[in-house]
Each structure stands twice: as C-alpha cells, then as structure tokens.
C-alpha cells in the first residue's frame, strides 16, 4: 500500500536497492584484511601440528635427547623452559603488582609518576635482544651468576615487567570506588583497604594477566640466548646456577646450527609443536579466564 503511495511523493524515499559501490568495495576489502591474521595463524598452526603430531609421544616428552640430539626426547628442554618461566614469575609478580599498587593508589601526579610511567612505556618497547645484552652485562658478568637459570629468569623478568604492571594496574583500577569507600567507612586504613579489599577483588585479573605474561615469557628466545640457554645439558638442571636447555632455543639450534639439521627435522617439529601447545594453551586459558571474569563481574 505504501509503495504505490510513495510514487507520488516529491522525494524518492523508497528505492528498490541502494547500490553503493564505494561502501561495498571498501567494506569487503576490510573484511578480507580482517581475516588475514586469523588465517595466517591457522595456516602456521596446521602446518606445525601436521608435521609434529606424529613425533609427539609419551617418550618424546619424558626422555632426554640421545645420539647428539638426533634421537630421544626433549624432557630436560621442557623442564628448562618451565623452570625459567616459573622463577621469572616468582621474581616479577610481587614487584609488578606492587608497582601497580603504587601507580594506582599511592603515586601523586607529578614528576615521579611521569618518570615511572615513561619508564614502563619505554621498557615495553625495548627489543628482546637488548634485554639479552643487559642480562649478559649485568647478571652473567657483573653479578657473576654465569650463564645460568637464575640469570635467564632475571632477564626474562625484566622483560615482562611492563606487561605485568599494566595488566595488574588495569585490574586494580577496575575495583569500584564504592568498595574502597565502604572499607574506609569501616575504619580501615589505606593499606588495610588495599590488602583486604582492593587486592582480593583485583586478584583474578592480576592472575589472568600473569598467566598471559607467562605465555609470552615461555616463548622468548633472544633474552635467554646469552644468559641461560645451553646447546646441550646432560639432564635437568640441579641448581639455579646451571645453564639450562629451553624449548625456543632448542628449535633455533636444531634448525640452524650443528651437523644434523635434516636428521633432526622431526624433533624440530615436535619441539615447535610442544612450545606452541604450551604457549597457546596458557594464552587460551588466560583469555577464557578473562572473559569469564568479565561476564561474572556484578559491579
């Protein structure tokens, strides 16, 4: 009924179709670009999984390498990466969270706050290989830790510091003011409020950030190249002052150095797949936890 009427109207409000070439072209271009990253991720994942899946076995992840690393498993390599990551997090989470508390609860606007913010921002942009150089000059040489688990963990810790700070700060800032006010109104001091109200409320967010940080750390190669990573160690590390093998470095050395590059190809794929499962698994865990927290958040 309206269609027939509209014909007599002075303006054409009704058209069969608004054919908009420009919008159509650009939006479909954007759609294609939008999926490029995701497709790349899947292609690489598929490739590594396809070549690595038949290498993975119980023996592969529980046995040490044998025959100049051309056979056997990668048990000490996995343990090395886990140890590096765990020590790194033990070192850095307290410092990162405290810095976040400083930034969100204590720091007053001014020179010091600006300096801290600027430092965090800059640290976040420093190339990982430069952290490696720093670790070499400070932890390995100046502190005389040598190429060791400890030096590597400290180097990784410094690298991931800005990330831990910013995720923790975000979690702390998300605690509603009304919670803090309620606590103050009960007669709590500032520190009590932080310890009993702010931190418990922010804790899920802080943990999620730390899990995502752990994922980042465990995949890094450059910072541990000259601070911790060994080409080969006979077993799992016995102390903090021993060099360790690590998954990312293992892939690098097997694929580029040595005389058995082609023979060790399956082990390279297997190691790469193990690393990806570890890193992306933790990532996925963090992402799922985070989205759950967001949905659950009642305030």
């Amino acid at each position: 009924m309206q269609d027939t009427e509209s014909i007599h109207k002075p303006f054409m409000l009704v058209r069969k179709k608004r054919f908009n070439l420009k919008q159509g072209f650009f939006l479909s271009l954007i759609r294609m670009l939008g999926f490029a990253g995701a497709i790349t991720l899947f292609v690489i994942l598929f490739f590594v999984a396809y070549n690595g899946i038949h290498v993975l076995s119980w023996e592969f992840i529980t046995q040490p390498p044998v025959d100049a690393m051309t056979k056997g498993g990668i048990f000490p390599v996995i343990i090395g990466t886990v140890a590096l990551t765990v020590f790194c997090m033990i070192i850095i989470i307290p410092i990162g969270v405290t810095t976040a508390i400083f930034l969100s609860e204590y720091a007053k606007p001014g020179l010091i706050l600006n300096m801290v913010m600027m430092s965090i921002y800059t640290l976040a942009g420093v190339p990982s290989v430069v952290f490696g150089l720093f670790g070499l000059a400070v932890f390995v040489v100046a502190f005389n830790f040598g190429m060791s688990l400890l030096a590597g963990s400290l180097t990784l810790a410094i690298m991931v510091l800005p990330y831990i700070i910013s995720t923790s700060e975000e979690a702390i800032k998300a605690v509603p003011n009304s919670f803090k006010e309620a606590s103050f109104a009960c007669g709590a001091t500032k520190w009590q409020t932080i310890r009993k109200v702010v931190l418990p409320t922010a804790m899920p967010g802080i943990l999620t950030g730390s899990i995502l940080g752990t994922a980042k750390v465990s995949g890094e190669t450059a910072p541990i190249m000259f601070t911790a990573a060994a080409f080969f160690t006979p077993g799992v590390p016995q102390s903090l002052f021993e060099p360790v093998m690590a998954l990312p470095y293992h892939i690098y050395v097997l694929a580029t150095a040595g005389t058995h590059i082609e023979e060790t190809r399956p082990i390279q794929y297997g190691t790469a797949l193990t690393l990806i499962v570890l890193v992306l698994g933790m990532n996925l865990l963090g992402i799922i936890l985070r989205s759950r927290q967001r949905k659950k958040k009642a305030w």
Partner: peptide, 29 residues
C-alpha cells in the same frame, strides 16, 4: 577497522582472541 567497526559481535568475540594469540605466538616458530 574490521574488528572495531565492521564485524558483528560474534565474529569479534572469535577474532579478537585469535589476534591476541597471534601476538604471543613464539617468534622462533
């Protein structure tokens, strides 16, 4: 632009984590 402006909610929920995972993909791999 795709994620922020064009994609619908479900595609967004799917793509954003993927991009995040790509960001932490080990560069050695």
């Amino acid at each position: 632009v795709y994620i922020a402006e064009v994609a619908n909610h479900r595609v967004k929920e799917f793509l954003k984590p993927l991009i995040e995972m790509l960001a932490s993909f080990p560069s050695v791999v």
